[in-house]
Design a protein around this nucleic acid. Structure first.
Length: 594
RNA sequence: GCUGGUGUGGCUCAGAGGUAGAGCAGCUCACUCGUAAUGAGCAGGCCGUGGGUUCGAUUCCCACCACCAGCUCCA
């Protein structure tokens, strides 16, 4: 065994260490509150948690008492001893100790599975291990209970909500402090805070949950991303469509949304009253865009048909789901559907992936993305349309494409759309929570529902394949991640305010306005500092540091007909003629430099 | 939807059972200043909304709404 096996560089050791700390937490809980029942307590990415069923709510005060008890347990240097029991004795032990959750876990273990326990002093827990040999190896001053919150038993929302205590632990206190400081630092980039401070968006009580208002700055960024994506798609052979934001229930009955997605839709009218028309706002664009294909009889020569749309969607999310710009009830995505001959599937899928990667790379998010192959769950068939055979076929084809393209992906079971498997491109926010940014989906089912067909070379009518895809995903969500990625200081090409003009004195105000007008005439986004326009007022510094360039204009510059350019990146000021600055800006914007 | 927390002028917060404060931002005036904070004055609040308890509530209780973290669900 080499020495560095017992450091946090080694994930296995790190997990073992933190899992042991979670046992120490459970032991502390049982010592202080014996009536509390134990559930499970694994290590996770940045620490560990343990779920408890307690007749009271844990508070910050409880956590502090528990931390103190945990430190005590570390000092006691209790040995962790593993032992195995046959099923009957294991059940008896947990029943005697009054642990119903552990009893359930044992009952669910497959026949023949080894049932192991770990004992440390007066505490024994059902656990597969592994663990450290003694609680003395845990540094008491380098562990911290970070939060407590609700969590469903076995992740099932129909079962009891338990209380989860999150914590973390490191081998040294300095490492713990550095981690906690990094977490605090990350929170400063939180788009939900920064985006409001910098006036990208706001929310309004009387408008409602999940319905953010994009303020001029946020709207500007979204607008230029949309224009750019639409142009890029046009270059790649996409046809732009504009389809309605709502439709009669009839459309959704054909698509399957009425049966599989009704809870997620905003319905206008009474779905149970057949005497009147009933509408619903669209939660997806698919059934609308298919109508473009269905407009007339299609030939194999028409395929692939690549349809793109900057599409606004409405989804009636549960009230607790909304989060800033990341999870909302109305959003706009770079939607698109490709209608294909089967032999075109692989090449077109590749084209979609290349486009998505190009878009994400250009805005700077690709380097932090991960890929997930989202599959159906054969044990949850009521969620999906189609037969197991059709699903196996679609997933088989998609898996082969992904492998051929060398995509490194994880597999997400029961993460598929109701009509097909997906490649989801995932991104984590500053809190470490992951969401889908871009999705590319293979759909062999909906063409049949909509009776879509084309005439092949032999004159036969054939069902096309369909790819559902986004290129930059949802603009609101993308904006949120951009704010977090750049801490609000967006690259010049997408910055809502590219240049701030600051007259030194009001003698220079006229000159400043001339410069501003000239820059705007060249298509740049400029503001005059609203407070410095008059002398002696303060600068809006919090926003100012997010603006890429500041032009300081005093008597000297005015007389020489120049501008003093302060670059945000290095803080340096360079004096140059305006045309030179315009050229510099134009270069950065055209090249989309970051 | 579930668990916990929060809700006081545009923002950050203080306050207390008798009907509200500070700093910053805003406006006015003065000051003409070289790259993150000039000075003086003014204005701004039905203390999230609706009920209840009370002589009296923004402060106590209930419901609802919104915001935050997490769970579940999803782009």
């Amino acid at each position: 065994m080499s020495e560095n096996q017992f450091t946090f560089e080694n994930k296995e050791y790190r997990d073992t260490y933190r899992h042991t700390v979670s046992h120490i937490l459970a032991q502390a809980v049982k010592r202080l509150y014996p009536e509390v029942k134990l559930a499970i307590g694994p290590s996770i990415e940045n620490g560990f948690y343990y779920d408890f069923d307690a007749p009271f709510s844990f508070t910050q005060e409880h956590l502090e008492l528990l931390e103190a008890e945990m430190r005590k347990i570390c000092k006691e240097k209790l040995r962790l001893e593993r032992f195995e029991l046959p099923r009957g004795e294991a059940l008896q032990l947990m029943e005697e100790r009054g642990e119903p959750y552990k009893v359930e876990l044992i009952n669910d273990l497959p026949e023949g599975e080894v049932i192991s326990f770990y004992r440390q002093g007066d505490f024994t827990d059902l656990c597969a291990g592994p663990h450290l040999d003694t609680t003395g190896r845990v540094k008491g001053n380098a562990l911290k209970l970070t939060s407590c919150t609700g969590a469903y038993w076995r992740g099932d929302s129909s079962r009891k909500m338990l209380q989860r205590i999150y914590g973390t632990a490191f081998p040294k206190k300095e490492e713990l402090d550095a981690y906690l400081a990094a977490v605090e630092e990350a929170k400063k980039r939180d788009h939900n805070k920064l985006g409001r401070e910098l006036e990208y968006f706001t929310t309004v009580d009387v408008i409602g949950q999940g319905l953010p208002v994009l303020l001029p700055k946020g709207a500007r960024v979204v607008q230029l991303l949309q224009r750019w994506v639409e142009d890029e798609e046009q270059k790649r052979g996409y046809l732009l469509t504009k389809t309605p934001l709502m439709a009669k229930s009839d459309l959704y009955k054909i698509s399957g949304h009425w049966d599989h997605y009704l809870d997620g839709m905003f319905v206008l009218g009474d779905p149970h009253d057949d005497s009147k028309e009933c509408f619903a706002l669209r939660p997806m664009t698919c059934p609308f865009q298919y109508q473009v294909f269905l407009n007339r009889m299609r030939s194999y020569r028409d395929l692939p048909m690549r349809l793109g749309e900057t599409s606004t969607l409405f989804r009636n999310e549960d009230s607790g789901e909304m989060h800033g710009l990341i999870r909302v009830r109305q959003f706009t995505i770079s939607e698109g559907h490709l209608i294909l001959r089967p032999d075109q599937l692989e090449a077109e899928f590749k084209g979609c992936l290349e486009l998505a990667k190009y878009c994400l790379d250009t805005v700077g998010l690709l380097e932090d993305c991960t890929f997930r192959f989202s599959q159906w769950d054969p044990n949850n068939q009521q969620k999906y349309i189609g037969t197991p055979e059709q699903w196996e076929e679609a997933q088989g084809i998609m898996g082969k494409i992904l492998d051929d393209l060398g995509v490194v992906y994880s597999i997400g079971i029961d993460e598929a759309a109701f009509y097909g498997p997906k490649l989801d491109i995932q991104y984590k926010n500053v809190h470490g929570k992951e969401d889908t940014l871009v999705t590319i989906q293979v759909d062999l089912l909906l063409a049949e529902q909509f009776d879509m067909e084309y005439v092949d070379q032999e004159g036969r009518k054939v069902r096309p394949y369909i790819i559902h895809r986004t290129s930059l995903g949802c603009y609101e969500r993308t904006l949120a991640y951009l704010i977090e990625k750049y801490a609000g200081a967006l690259p010049v090409w997408m910055a809502p305010e590219q240049v701030r003009v600051m007259p030194m004195t009001d003698r220079n105000a006229g000159y400043a306005y001339e410069i501003k007008a000239e820059l705007e005439a060249n298509g740049f986004r400029v503001e005059i500092d609203p407070s410095n326009e008059k002398i002696g007022k303060k600068i809006r510094e919090a926003q100012l540091e997010k603006v890429p360039y500041m032009l300081v204009l005093g008597d000297k510059e005015q007389e020489a007909g120049q501008v003093a350019v302060r670059n945000r990146k290095d803080g340096k000021t360079t004096v140059m003629p305006l045309p030179e600055f315009i050229e510099k800006l134009r270069y950065e914007v055209d090249k989309k430099l970051r």
